[in-house]
């Protein structure tokens, strides 16, 4: 019976605990401060709700 491949090292988002393939900030798979894309855009203030519906 062929040996099962070793499980890949899982990287976990430091903020929400979601399993991710690589850190969205530094693109590394061995980042000690890994962040998923969702947590990163929130951290960098890129996904805040529009201030006005009509973009005022």
């Amino acid at each position: 019976m062929p040996a099962e491949p070793a499980p890949a090292v899982t990287l976990v988002c430091r903020h929400c605990g979601r399993e991710i393939e690589f850190c969205s900030f530094c693109d590394r798979t061995d980042c000690a401060a890994a962040s998923c894309y969702g947590c990163l855009v929130i951290a960098l203030g890129e996904s805040t709700a529009p201030l006005h519906v009509h973009g005022g």
């Binding site: 969205s24 900030f25 530094c26 693109d27 590394r28 401060a33 951290a43 960098l44 203030g45 890129e46």
Partner: peptide
């Protein structure tokens, strides 16, 4: 990974140091 021009500089600096980028 790319970042938008309006991100405050102190946030970018903190992340770049933390992620050794």
């Amino acid at each position: 990974s790319t970042f938008r021009p309006h991100v405050p500089i102190e946030e970018m600096a903190a992340h770049m140091v933390e992620h050794d980028r």
